[in-house]
Every structure is written in structure tokens, then in C-alpha cells.
Design a protein around this nucleic acid. Structure first.
Lengths: 201, 201
DNA sequence: ACCTCATCTGGACATTGACAAGATCAAGAT
DNA sequence: ATCTTGATCTTGTCAATGTCCAGATGAGGT
């Protein structure tokens, strides 16, 4: 974190831009996001980001890629504090991690799932997104004892679990789940856990 | 639909702007949406929309309001073609209508649920959104025989149903439900129906 | 010492949202 | 018949933005 703004070359501008971009995204939201503002935040010229990310889509794609990585971490973090190795408890933990991420980084969550500004043709992004989803698939595989990629019923479990968590998270972030929004964090978790149990009976 | 561009006053500019706005939204998406482009589409000066809607947020709020109205219509339309009066069949029909709307107007769907550019403080918008959700609540009420607003278990059913449909629709629109996207329309409907049945056992 | 090339700067251009002042016109008041 | 009022729409303007382009800078290899 040592400040060194003497040199013409920044040293690690790409990482600095990504960090600033996340800050700007969290502050202004997707719609208010601006390349020039990100550049200002870092203290470089307005067109410096272009060299590293091409255009706005490029920067947002990189940001979303990092987002999916943290998204995966959030699910794994919840699983790490689970005492048992019970497959159902681990699946629920992933769901709670899913919610943790959405509530902790709402703008990033929205960027990853609800924006046309991200280009999923980007290979790194697609890989990161698939890795996060594969994690849920593995949870189902552990629960069912068979890989969803080889068993249609298990794949249906995956789809049901994804849809349920994501719908709950998205509606909550959109402010459309008023009865749930009135709850405090522990009550909300318990409520979600009960709902989530329906998809993996 | 008679063209009359002779007069200085348009006659029903507000409606014309709303129609053009929906067209522009569908063509360019939310991020590419532009007030000036809408004005151009109607053949009117670039700041004419401001008088009717204030600013961009105002127009999008009006657009989202109309969207929720059609959203409700889509669910009701599916229910109308149901032969039986079976409560479960009617709930499923609502879910399929939910999907119809999302797939038929993806940009509008995204505007209504996933954009910060819409101001839900707008009363008309909030009323339209609540009306659409109340419809699902009534489906559950018919199924359970008790109003969700008076019974916590029934409200949990509503939350589960909302989360499931919305998650399925949102992930499908985001291109994240690859196994489902490969299906044709009838297969997709059958698949969703099977998933949806889990939340109302 | 020189070269090469990735990195970063500064200027330019078209487009946008918002604002302000004025033009146009319909409808009621006198 | 003329005036007034207010809603509707236009024109001009400003700052901000994304993208492109030519050029400045300097690190690392030859």
C-alpha cells in the first residue's frame, strides 16, 4: 500500500484499475459506472484503462471474472465452518454463501448476472462462471452419489437449487421480498434454509 | 395509427414516447437506452420527453409500470387456457406466464427486476409491481385455502414459488442455464413444470 | 550506446442527459 | 373579437462520457 506516484509507469496499473473499478461500481452502481472516473480514482490519464482492458466491456468482464472467483470463495467459506460432513448441510452452506456474496457485493452480483454490459464470450469470464456453478453441481453430486452431468434427475436437482437460491437472492436485492427484508440476518438465514430444503428433499 | 405530423402539438406524445421507448429498449438494451434516441424515433425534439417524464428515470419508471401490467396479463393469459379449476394447475400456469413474459420481453424483464435506473419510489410503479405479486399470492391462497398475509406457512409457499420462478427465468435470460437452453419450447415448459412442482408439494 | 516495444499521456470528436429560454397553440375569459 | 393563461414542444447550451489517434516515456534487451 506504499504510495509511489513519482514514476511515469505505474507498475501494476491493471490491478489498481480493477480495485478502483470495484470501488466505483459499489458506489455508483452499474449504470453510473464510468471509465474516466475509474482512471481519476487511480490518478492516471482518462485513456489509460483502454490499453489494459480495451474498452468498458473489457474492464467489466475482468471485474465480473474476479467477482465469480470471490463468489466461489463465499460458498466455500460457509462450508468450511460447517462442523459435520453431511451432504445436505454442505449444500445449504453453499446457498448461504451465495446469499452472503449477493448481500455483500450487490452491484457486483448484479453485474455478473443481470447486465448486458458484460461479454460472456470472454473465455476467462466463462471459465470463472462455470467454476462457480460446478461447485453447486458437486454439492448435488455428493448428496445424490452421482454426477449431475451423468444423471438427468441429479441435474434437475442442480437446476432447482440454482433457481431457488438465485431467485431468492435476486428478488431480495431488488427489494421485492418485503416480508424477508424486515428480518434480521439470523432470521433471514433460517428462513432461507427452510425454503432451500424444499428443492433437495 | 393515422400519421399526422403537420401540427406542432403531437396530440398523444406521451403514449408515442412510451411505445418508442419500449422499441428502443428491446433493440439496444437498458445500457444503450437513450432519451434522445427515443425522441428521434418519434420524430420530435431531443428534449420533448423531459416535459412528460421529467428525466430518464421517469420514463423508465413509466415503462416498467406498463411492464408489470403486461407481466400480470401474461400470467392471467396462461391461466385462461387451463381447462380445469385445479389450484395447482392454475399456480403452474402463472409460473409459465412468468416465463412467457421474461422470454418475450427480456429487456423489459431486466428493467423491472434488475436495474438501478428505475425508481421504485414511484407510486404507480410500486402499485403495479405489488399487483403482479399479489396475483401469485392469490394462487397460493387458492391452493392452501388461507391468505398468505394471514398465515406464515402460506407466505413461505409464496416466497418459495417466487424465488423458484424468478431464479429460473433470470438465470435462463442470463444464459446460465445451459442444459435448459438447449431444449425446445415444449420441453422447456415441461422441465420447468417439474421443477416448480417441488415448491408446492 | 542504441533499439524496441509495452505503457501511459493529451487532444479530438460524436453522443448523451440535463437545463434554460423561447416559440407555438388550444381554450377559456373579457 | 381580442386577450390571457398555461400546457406543449423547440432550440441552444453545458459538462461528462467512450473511443480513437498520435505522441511522450522509459524499462529491458542487444
Amino acid at each position: 500500500m506504499t504510495e509511489e506516484k513519482s514514476s511515469y509507469h505505474h507498475g501494476d496499473l491493471r490491478a489498481a484499475l480493477l480495485g478502483a473499478a470495484e470501488k466505483v461500481l459499489a458506489e455508483t452502481g452499474i449504470e453510473g459506472f464510468s471509465l474516466r472516473r475509474v482512471a481519476r480514482e487511480v490518478g492516471v490519464s482518462h485513456s489509460a484503462p483502454a490499453h489494459h482492458f480495451g474498452d468498458t466491456q473489457g474492464l467489466l468482464a475482468a471485474l465480473a471474472t474476479e467477482g465469480f472467483s470471490r463468489f466461489l470463495n463465499a460458498m466455500q467459506a460457509r462450508q468450511r465452518v460447517v462442523e459435520t460432513r453431511d451432504a445436505r448441510a454442505l449444500l445449504t452452506a453453499s446457498g448461504l454463501g451465495y446469499l452472503d456474496f449477493a448481500q455483500g457485493s450487490p452491484a457486483l452480483f448484479q453485474l455478473m448476472f443481470g447486465s448486458e454490459r458484460v461479454d460472456f464470450c470472454d473465455q476467462a469470464l466463462d471459465r470463472a462462471a462455470n467454476a462457480a456453478f460446478d461447485h453447486l453441481a458437486q454439492d448435488i453430486a455428493r448428496l445424490r452419489g452421482v454426477s449431475p452431468y451423468q444423471d438427468d434427475a441429479a441435474m434437475a436437482d442442480v437446476m432447482a437449487a440454482w433457481s431457488m437460491v438465485h431467485g431468492f437472492a435476486a428478488l431480495l436485492m431488488a427489494g421485492r421480498l418485503k416480508p424477508v427484508q424486515a428480518m434480521d440476518a439470523p432470521a433471514r438465514e433460517a428462513y432461507f434454509t427452510a425454503l432451500f430444503a424444499r428443492v433437495a428433499p
